[in-house]
């Protein structure tokens, strides 16, 4: 069980791509997870929620595309523009 470390890794990647002033506009973080990636999606969602709680990214939730293989990738993030300014 290492989903917390993976959740942290996902958050690091999101941080690297989303300017700090848009952090609270992040709604969806889309992942591609293979059936051989060794990741329990439910557990990862729980850990990600814990990782972002109390942070500027608290409104981010995971959306998962399940594929075959060992992929474990961050595909994209969706921002709610209306929430961006001064949020």
């Amino acid at each position: 069980m290492h989903e917390f470390g993976i959740a942290q890794g996902i958050l690091d990647i999101v941080r690297a791509h989303v300017p700090p002033d848009q952090a609270s506009a992040v709604r969806e973080v889309r992942l591609r997870i293979g059936d051989r990636a060794g990741v329990l999606v439910e557990s990862l969602e729980f850990c990600f929620g814990a990782a972002v709680a109390g942070s500027p990214y608290a409104s981010a939730v995971l959306a998962v595309d399940r594929v075959s293989g060992d992929d474990l990738q961050v595909v994209h993030v969706e921002l709610d523009e209306d929430a961006e300014v001064g949020a």
Partner: peptide, 9 residues
Amino acid sequence: SVITIERKV
């Protein structure tokens, strides 16, 4: 809006 990332965790 969407920011494309495509990076391995």
